[in-house]
Design a protein around this nucleic acid. Structure first.
Ligand SMILES: [Zn+2]
Ligand SMILES: [Zn+2]
Length: 718
DNA sequence: AATCAAGGCCAC
DNA sequence: GTGGCCTTGATT
């Protein structure tokens, strides 16, 4: 902390060699032509072949009313056309309806679009409002669309009209419309937005026919969908997705490349671990009452009993664990949840010391032995004690390398802030409670719920058996991690990366010497510059991001840096609805922005922030969304979009699952958040539009990263 | 303001 | 080195 020196905060990632000086050094490297590097060749061949290939300029289909009302039929028809247009760079279409009320005989024109800037590589079908000639004409030239990609669906945002234009996905089709846009999942409306403002509302009966409006949609997302809606209707995948076209890759920027390619010292201690260590009896709440039958869970727990009727607050706190059984390691009283399991205070301390001091013990009786662990004997053999700690599920990752105190941490197996729907103190009978425990069982929970607990004895089988139980008892809950108590790895990684850079509070001095306008601009751009660096550092801490090639990393960052900067801004400003937070203590409101001639973009960001605030964006969701924004397989110049798509898919699935379980009251949260990603794209486009034409060189250092990105982004957007 | 898991302290 | 109790601080 406190690294308030004017130099860059020396990255909390201590080991990383990314000091301010080094960054500066990197910058100065520009001059030296460290070649743009070898371009991968094989993909290119293919690409060129594709792009040079002649495509039908346009195709036209006319939909009958029956097709319009039958999603499947519509989809089929569209598929046919799309197949015909395969390889085209971009598709747009228009619903040609002369009168708004007409559902009949609407015509959809799909035409290929000449290589367009922002989304050249993404085959998207967007249905736009009929709006006579004017629009069509405009469309001919520069109708830009933004595309965000979901597991298997694409959402198209028409940048000229602040609304989601379409959503597309390969499987089931559905079409909905009107001035109100409806997002359907498996033919069920999960949310609707209208107009520019994006109201909320759910509603809209399924099977709405297409009218003139902007429309449409079509997504269906396999597993994720099931998660939310139990639709028995199964879809067969018939990918419409068209092979990606890739434009001549943009020149790589030496600095940027260097920045990205410096591998961080991965100090993440492998999150891997057992894929199956969900745990936790979500209990906690139920501790007190429950099971009227066996008041005290038997077992001669050594509660102080005598005297201490009302001990210290500490003693008080410990009491809540008394009927949870003994410490799985040594049999002492449980004092809380430590490093992944419920354990006693001494084992907690022991584990901490051992890990922190990197102690390595050796059992005098051989490595195979299992010395007895009990209150009295636990001190005899640290080696066996440590082994047992690990066996029982204590996580080394839970020990903080930086010794930060307080706060909450996340690691696989960490207990969630329970907001269990249940929780109602008033009620649920012992039956419910015990059932819950049984279901939730798994390593840690299993041990704890066993009243007897055969002290030691290795039963490594516990885990397996409890999982069997779990499967037997859980008839429902199909997808993935039923463990409502542990987060998927990708989410944890996202959050960790976020935390990594979060506290680098850029103590940007935005000096109050705001007298000079030039100085103001310069300060603001410097601020952006720093945030860019932070962005790069953040991305490099993302394990998923590091699985793609350096070239692709650069492409991804170039693709989304504006979005992420805007998003960052929204996040910072979440607490101040009416103004944008530039730094810790500097805000700017609409009026002030107007004076700077930036009210347009500021207004957009404010609106977006307001929406995010209303939706209740949490840190976890924010972290995940950032990854989603980053990992866009449609980014220009990607040599291996498949990997990116895989990451994206995983993240989307995980996030959806997470929002569903974490916010049971807001089943649409994921959808709402996802639509905000589209808004973010639009906002970023606006921001870019505002800046792209300007010459910022007077305000920037000659070798600034910002400048570099500006140049390359200009190149790509023509 | 309340939680609560992580680190720290310090007699023993 | 142990382990009971205390302080922290992000989250809710
Ligand atoms: Zn213990
Ligand atoms: Zn031993």
């Amino acid at each position: 902390m406190a690294t308030t020196t004017s130099t860059n905060p020396a990255s909390a990632t201590n080991m990383t060699p990314t000091s301010a000086e080094e960054i500066a050094a990197l910058f100065n490297l520009v001059g030296s032509s460290s070649g743009p590097a070898i371009q991968t060749q094989q993909p290119l061949q293919q690409q060129q072949q594709l792009s040079s290939q002649q495509l039908p300029a346009a195709a036209e289909i006319v939909l009958t009313s029956s097709e319009l009302s039958d999603p499947m039929a519509l989809q089929q028809k569209l598929s046919a056309v799309l197949a015909q247009l395969r390889n085209s760079s971009s598709l747009t279409g228009a619903i040609d309806g002369s009168d708004d009320s007409a559902n009949l005989g609407q015509k959809i024109i799909i035409r290929t679009q000449p290589q367009q800037s922002s989304t050249p590589s993404c085959p998207v079908l967007s249905v736009v409002k009929p709006e006579p000639e004017f629009q069509l004409q405009q469309q001919q030239q520069h109708r830009r669309v933004s595309v965000v990609t979901m597991p298997t669906a694409s959402v198209v945002v028409d940048n000229n009209a602040p609304i989601v234009t379409s959503i597309q996905c390969p499987s089931n089709a559905a079409i909905a419309t009107t001035t109100q846009q409806v997002l359907l999942l498996n033919n069920k409306p999960i949310m609707a937005t209208c107009g520019p403002a994006a109201a909320t509302a759910t509603a809209a009966a399924p099977g709405i026919a297409a009218t003139s409006g902007n429309v449409l949609l079509i997504p269906i997302d396999s597993a994720a969908a099931n998660f939310q809606l139990q639709t028995q209707q199964q879809q067969q995948q018939q990918p419409i997705l068209i092979p990606q076209l890739q434009p001549q890759s943009v020149q790589q920027q030496p600095q940027f490349k260097k920045l990205v390619s410096v591998r961080p010292k991965i100090e993440q201690t492998t999150f891997s671990s057992a894929p199956s260590t969900p745990s936790q009896p979500d209990g906690a709440g139920g501790v007190a009452g429950h099971a009227g039958s066996s008041s005290s869970a038997g077992s001669g727990i050594t509660i102080g009993g005598s005297g201490c009727v009302n001990g210290s607050p500490w003693q008080q706190y410990i009491k809540q664990f008394t009927n949870m059984g003994p410490c799985p390691v040594c049999g002492d009283k449980i004092s809380g949840y430590h490093y992944g399991i419920f354990s006693c205070e001494s084992c907690k301390g022991f584990f901490k010391r051992t890990v922190q001091n990197r102690k390595t013990y050796v059992c005098h009786r051989g490595s195979q032995s299992a010395c007895e662990m009990s209150l009295l004997s636990r001190k005899k053999c640290p080696a066996c004690r440590m082994r047992k700690c690990l066996e029982k599920g204590m996580k080394v990752e839970a020990i903080r390398g930086d010794r930060t105190r307080g706060g909450r941490s996340l690691y696989t197996g960490m207990r969630l802030q329970q907001n269990s729907v249940v929780a109602a103190p008033a009620a649920p009978t012992s039956v419910a409670a015990s059932a819950t425990v049984a279901v939730a069982s798994s390593s840690g929970a299993a041990q704890l719920s066993q009243t007897s607990s055969s002290s030691n004895s290795t039963e490594s089988s516990t885990l397996a058996s409890s999982q069997q139980q779990q499967q037997q008892q859980q008839q429902t809950d199909p997808s993935s991690d039923s463990s409502a108590s542990s987060l998927p790895t990708c989410i944890i990684e996202a959050v960790n990366s976020e935390r990594m850079v979060m506290h680098e509070e850029d103590s940007l001095d935005l000096a109050e010497s705001a007298a000079d306008e030039t100085a103001v601009y310069r300060a603001l751009l410097l601020l952006a510059e720093r945030r860019l660096y932070r962005l790069v550092r953040w991305s490099r801490h993302l394990p998923a991001f590091n699985t793609v090639s350096t070239e692709d990393q650069i492409a991804l960052l170039q693709n989304c840096w504006v979005e992420l900067l805007c998003f960052d801004c929204c996040w910072r400003s979440l607490q101040t609805p009416s103004e944008i937070r530039l730094t810790a203590n500097k805000c700017i409101n609409l009026e002030a922005a107007r004076e700077l001639g930036a009210h347009g973009i500021v207004g957009e960001i404010l609106a977006l922030t307001g929406d995010l605030c209303r939706i209740g964006l949490s840190l976890t969701e924010y972290a995940c969304l950032k990854v989603i924004v980053l990992m866009q397989p449609d980014a220009q110049g990607l040599s291996c979009p498949e990997k990116v798509r895989a990451c994206l898919d995983e993240m989307c699935q995980s996030l959806m699952a997470h929002t569903v379980t974490a916010c049971p009251n807001e089943p649409n949260k994921f959808a709402e958040l996802f639509l905000k990603v589209a808004d973010l794209k639009r906002t970023a486009t606006a921001a870019w539009a505002m800046l792209a034409g300007k010459d910022l060189s007077p305000y920037l250092e000659t070798n600034s990263l910002l400048m570099e990105l500006f140049k390359s982004s200009r190149l790509r957007s023509g």
